[in-house]
Design a protein around this nucleic acid. Sequence first.
DNA 1: AAGAAGGACAACCGCCCGAGG
DNA 2: TCCTCGGGCGGTTGTCCTTCT
Length: 248
Amino acid sequence: MGRAPCCDKANVKRGPWLPEEDAVLRSYIEKHGTGGNWIALPLKAGLNRCGKSCRLRWLNYLRPNIKRGGFTEEEDDIIFSLYRKLGSRWSIIASHLRGRTDNDIKNYWNTKLKKKMIMSSYNTTATMDPSTTPPPALLPAAAVKSESSSHTTDSISKLYSPLFSSNYINSMINDQEGSMSSSTITADDGNGSSRRDRNWPAGEEDTLLSEFDLGFLSELLGDYGSGEMLGEVPPPLLWTASEFMCAQ
DNA sequence: AAGAAGGACAACCGCCCGAGG
DNA sequence: TCCTCGGGCGGTTGTCCTTCT
């Protein structure tokens, strides 16, 4: 038996918020605050909405001093750097960017920044032609392995740092250590998401990850692979977006 | 000009965790 | 110590808008 829902979904309005609803919510919170109880808030405010929906609307849209769109290069750098350290801890990343919400950053990463990083990884190998070759990070492991013989650990980390978060790689290693039978890795882009990105060729993620050799990843990460993720991020994974571009 | 495909982002879902009874 | 509940969070989906063919 599952947990009781926070509200009666059949009797609350869902979907896009109307300007009038925004006005009611904003007005109520400005006058009374949230009262520390989002579940009760819609009733008090006279809104036929779920409390969680009100909370989300306020935090992501109505809250004062929210910046929308137009991410700067500096913000890109911060997001990139923190993502390298923390993975998809969007709320923590958002706390480092004044006026940005976790949802905003998450969307920005998934729609723009991630692709930007993937495309930049082409430049790690001068002979690669984007018109004929998938990004290095999308190459099947076999191809990477044969190519890796001419790479140092640093250059391999550089190659993969745009795509895989350190906690993702650590989790793969832990998974290997924890269970020898866990040979199947589900498609995951390092963001913890199993969603198919429509821009990626069908099957590429599966090809990449099902063939990924965990031992190779351990080797890639070297001594820090088995360490605590936070505070022990290896130098190659600490690059900012600008540094990453310049390092090519 | 129209339909298809892709991009952007708002909103929802469901799980986890901590507080408090 | 256990249980319940609400808040918070990350992942996912839906929908509207833009661009492409």
